[in-house]
Computed example of a mutant assay.
Amino acid sequence: MNKKRIGLIGAAVGTAGAVGVGAVVAARRYAVGRARLTPDPDAGEPFGELRGRPLTVEASDGVPLHVEIDGPDDAPLTVVFCHGYCLNEDCWHFQRRDLGRDGDLRLVLWDQRSHGRSGRSDLTHATIDQCGADLFAVLEATVDPGTPVVLVGHSMGGMTIMALAESHPELFEDGRIAAVALINTSSGELAELSLGLPMAFGKVFKTALPRVTRSLGKRAELVERGRRAGADVAFMVTRRIAFGDKRVSPSVVDFVEQMIRSTPIDVIAEFYPTLAAHDKLAALEVIRGLPALVVVGDEDRLTPPAHGRLIAEILGDAELVELSEAGHVTMMEHPEVVTRALIRLIDRVRPVAEEEERSA
Rank of each mutant, 00 (worst) to 15 (best):
R120K: 05
D122F: 07
D122E: 09
L123H: 10
T124G: 15
T124L: 14
T124I: 13
H125K: 15
A126M: 14
A126E: 12
A126K: 12
A126C: 15
T127M: 11
T127Q: 10
Q130N: 13
Q130R: 15
C131E: 13
C131N: 14
C131S: 14
G132S: 10
G132N: 07
L135Y: 11
L135S: 08
F136D: 12
V138M: 02
E140M: 09
E140A: 10
E140L: 04
E140W: 03
T142P: 02
T142R: 00
T142H: 02
V143P: 02
D144E: 12
D144A: 14
T147D: 09
T147E: 11
P148R: 12
V149H: 06
V150L: 11
V150P: 09
V150D: 03
V152H: 06
V152P: 05
V152N: 05
V152I: 11
H154E: 07
H154I: 04
M156E: 06
M156D: 01
G157C: 05
G158K: 07
G158L: 08
G158Y: 05
M159T: 07
M159H: 02
M159N: 00
M159C: 01
T160S: 02
I161T: 04
I161M: 08
I161Q: 01
A163Q: 07
A163H: 03
A163R: 05
A165T: 06
P169V: 00
P169K: 06
E170V: 08
E170N: 00
F172G: 04
E173D: 11
E173Q: 10
D174K: 03
D174E: 09
G175P: 02
R176A: 02
R176I: 07
R176G: 05
A178I: 03
A179C: 06
A181T: 04
L182V: 01
L182A: 03
I183D: 05
N184C: 08
N184R: 04
S187M: 10
G188N: 06
L190E: 07
A191Q: 15
A191E: 13
E192A: 14
L193P: 10
S194M: 04
S194V: 00
S194H: 13
L195Q: 13
L195N: 12
L195S: 11
G196C: 08
L197R: 11
L197V: 00
L197S: 09
M199R: 15
A200F: 13
G202T: 11
K203C: 10
K203F: 11
F205T: 03
F205Q: 07
T207S: 15
T207G: 12
A208L: 15
L209A: 13
